[in-house]
Design a protein around this nucleic acid. Structure first.
Length: 202
DNA sequence: TCGAAGATTGTCT
DNA sequence: GACAATCTTCGAG
């Protein structure tokens, strides 16, 4: 099992952190057990100047964790139904973060299946931001936590070569929807949606 | 105090 | 492919 990524890992440009988080292992420990997955898809949200970032609306009780130190978790509830997990990046106060959109199950797979329901199979276990949180057991109690120690950590995994990383526009947003800030491992079955390459990338 | 919209997902047509 | 589920936040009244 790889070492826990240090705070310095997150204290860099958000796009860099988003790319380098591919291939790392997100591990969540709960009373029910430990579950982890290899991160295969991320998106960068670069701060108050990014219209799609929650911080664009300014600092609120909800977005407060974004303004914390790098290497902090930001877990928020969306559409009244799902949790989404982010890792805060760059210097404290810049309110930027990396959204983890999909992971490939690594350990505790039986536990994930129990959480997601017996009818859920294959890639549907963790191929989406809400799905992976449900599978790993991430919820509001994991919000605003340090990712260096505690129940929610990110560990070093296998390095991912630049040629394996695909870049596209972010998904599911209406503002700045064409910014190329989504990264995923080319060809991985657990990526949440089929690649939609940017015109410039074609 | 009310209404609308949002970084989604599961179910029905 | 369309839509409901259902919480948080923000702006208007």
């Amino acid at each position: 099992m790889g070492r826990i990524l240090p705070r310095e890992f997150y204290d860099r440009e958000t796009e860099t952190v988003a790319r380098e988080m591919l291939g790392t292992i997100l591990e969540c420990r709960t009373p029910a057990g430990v579950a982890s997955g290899i991160i295969v898809e991320t998106e960068a949200y670069t701060g108050e100047d990014d219209p799609a970032c929650h911080a664009a609306a300014g600092r609120t009780r909800r977005t407060a964790p974004l303004y914390g130190p790098p290497g902090t978790s930001y877990v928020y509830f969306i559409y009244g139904v799902h949790w989404c997990f982010n890792a805060v990046t760059r210097a404290e106060g810049l309110a930027s973060a990396v959204l983890v959109r999909a992971v490939e199950p690594f350990s505790g797979i039986d536990l994930m299946k129990r959480r997601r329901g017996s009818r859920v199979q294959g890639v549907n276990l963790t191929n989406g931001p809400g799905k992976l949180c449900a599978a790993l057991g991430i919820d509001g109690t994991m919000n605003a936590r340090s990712l260096q120690r505690g129940d929610l950590v990110v560990r070093a995994g296998r390095p991912v070569a630049a040629e394996e990383i695909e870049t596209t526009a972010r998904i599911g947003i209406t503002k700045a929807a064409d910014w190329p800030l989504r990264y995923f491992i080319r060809g991985n079955r657990f990526v949440s949606k089929a690649p939609k390459a940017l015109p410039a990338a074609m």
